[in-house]
Design a protein around this nucleic acid. Sequence first.
DNA 1: TTACTTGCAAACGTTTTGCACGATT
DNA 2: AATCGTGCAAAACGTTTGCAAGTAA
Lengths: 138, 138
Amino acid sequence: MKSIWFEKLTKNGYRLTGPLKTVVEVISGTARALTPIEIFEIAKTKNNKIGLVSVYRSLEKLEETHLVQRVHQPSGCQSFVPSTDHHEHLLLCSTCGEVKVFEGDELGDLIRSISDQTGYVITDHWLQLFGKCEKCQK
Amino acid sequence: MKSIWFEKLTKNGYRLTGPLKTVVEVISGTARALTPIEIFEIAKTKNNKIGLVSVYRSLEKLEETHLVQRVHQPSGCQSFVPSTDHHEHLLLCSTCGEVKVFEGDELGDLIRSISDQTGYVITDHWLQLFGKCEKCQK
DNA sequence: TTACTTGCAAACGTTTTGCACGATT
DNA sequence: AATCGTGCAAAACGTTTGCAAGTAA
């Protein structure tokens, strides 16, 4: 997984430096949405020279390369999760922060109907589900 | 409309002060999502003594009373729109920021199926559409 | 060798807090 | 009269920027 990330980053013209590789390691290997500061804390255990600024700059590059995306939650909108090429939606555990991805929504009819009613040209949509994962139900 | 807002705020134990009333006037009378600073700027034209801090504190009360809600957009998550009692979704114009509200999503089947697949208890969902309003299409 | 990236420090913009004064109930 | 809300100033917070030094290509 990491090597695909590295390849895409290189293809986008970014240099594969220590800090960027560390951030990739941290984010690509987690199931939870992480904030820049959480990423920084974990990254420091792998590379104690890394600066918080590099985490922000790495996130910019990863977002630009569509390898990560920002997650919006009632509690805040600073955290990031790995992203994929295809259109997808998120299912978030409100308790532990675990994130699952799903596809296959049947929003076509709804979108067409809202578009007809409002005259809007609809270009994008966000769908997110919130709940409790199996572990956190106990 | 404003008087209903005042009533609900009073019922929640809040005092009807000048700044709060001004913020209600501003938000209840707009079709656009407004940031605290935008609200402050408009509020000053109606009450030049109002402070930005009061805008923040009024928004807290209005959110607590479920009269406004925060809007999440790719460009940021600081703006607010009037809210209603019933479950609803937003349609946003990415160009002018106009917000329309709609109900009646048919997400039940999808939610049940995702719940079965993942073992999550799903408690809430967000659905937002982005597009261009009729004016901004020209 | 060149140009991108780094870490640090400082700047920035938004939001929150402490406090004495003022206003609502 | 009691308590809640105000405005101001200062602090806190997350994020961005400028810069000289370091490093990948």
